[in-house]
Amino acid sequence: MRNVVLFALENAFISTISGPLEIFSSTGLMWNYLAGEPLDLQFQVTVASLHGEPIKTRTGLIVQPDTSIFDIEDADLILVTSCGEDIEAALTHYQSALPWLRQQHSNGAILGSICSGLSLIAATGLLDGKSATTHWGMVDIFRKRFPAIDIKADQLFVDEGDIITSGGGFAGNDLALYLVQMFCGKEQSKQCANALLLDTNRKSQNQFSGILHHRMHQDDRVQEIQSWLDLHYQDEINLDKLAEKYSMSPRNFKRRFKLASGATPLAYLQKLRIEVAKKLLESSDVQINNIAETVGYLDDSHFRKIFKRYTALTPSDYRNKNS
Rank of each mutant, 00 (worst) to 15 (best):
T124K: 06
G117H: 06
E236V: 09
F7D: 01
I288Q: 11
K278A: 05
V222W: 02
K56M: 12
K241P: 02
N194A: 13
T124S: 08
D285C: 09
Q207N: 14
S301K: 15
E275H: 10
S116A: 11
G169M: 05
G108Q: 10
F170R: 02
G36L: 10
L156E: 07
V139Y: 10
P99G: 00
T92W: 00
K130I: 02
W136R: 05
L259V: 10
W228G: 00
C83M: 14
A12T: 14
D219H: 11
L313C: 11
R58S: 13
N206A: 10
A292E: 00
A243G: 11
L269I: 01
D240P: 06
F307S: 01
E88H: 14
V4C: 05
A123E: 07
W100G: 03
K254D: 10
D300C: 11
I306W: 05
W100P: 05
F307Q: 01
G84R: 02
N201T: 14
G19T: 03
V139C: 12
G210I: 04
F307L: 06
K130S: 04
P99N: 08
V276N: 13
E160D: 12
N3I: 01
D230K: 11
D199A: 15
D74E: 15
H214E: 04
N3Q: 13
M182W: 13
Y297C: 00
H93F: 12
S15M: 10
Q95N: 11
I149V: 14
E160M: 13
Q223P: 00
G117I: 00
K144V: 04
G161R: 09
D40W: 09
F253E: 08
R58V: 08
G296W: 08
Y310N: 06
H213G: 08
L281F: 05
S113I: 07
Y246L: 05
A193I: 04
N252G: 00
I225P: 03
G169P: 00
G52K: 07
A89G: 07
S284Q: 12
A148R: 13
T314F: 09
R215K: 11
S261W: 05
V45T: 10
Q207F: 12
W228Q: 02
A267E: 15
R319A: 11
Q191A: 15
G172W: 01
A123V: 03
M216H: 12
H51T: 14
W228P: 02
P65Y: 08
H213R: 13
A12F: 02
N289Q: 14
Q103S: 12
T57V: 10
E73R: 15
A148Q: 15
T311R: 09
W136F: 14
L242R: 04
K130H: 09
Y33V: 14
D300N: 15
A260I: 08
K203C: 08
V222T: 03
S106C: 05
L50H: 11
Y233L: 08
T200R: 11
N3V: 02
I110Q: 03
P265H: 02
L198T: 08
N3L: 00
T81M: 07
S316F: 12
K254G: 03
T92I: 13
I211Q: 00
Y33G: 06
K271C: 05
C115A: 09
T92F: 12
G296Q: 08
K203F: 11
F146R: 09
S261V: 07
F183E: 02
D71H: 14
R221C: 10
I17A: 07
A48S: 10
I87F: 06
L101V: 01
D74S: 15
L259F: 11
T92N: 13
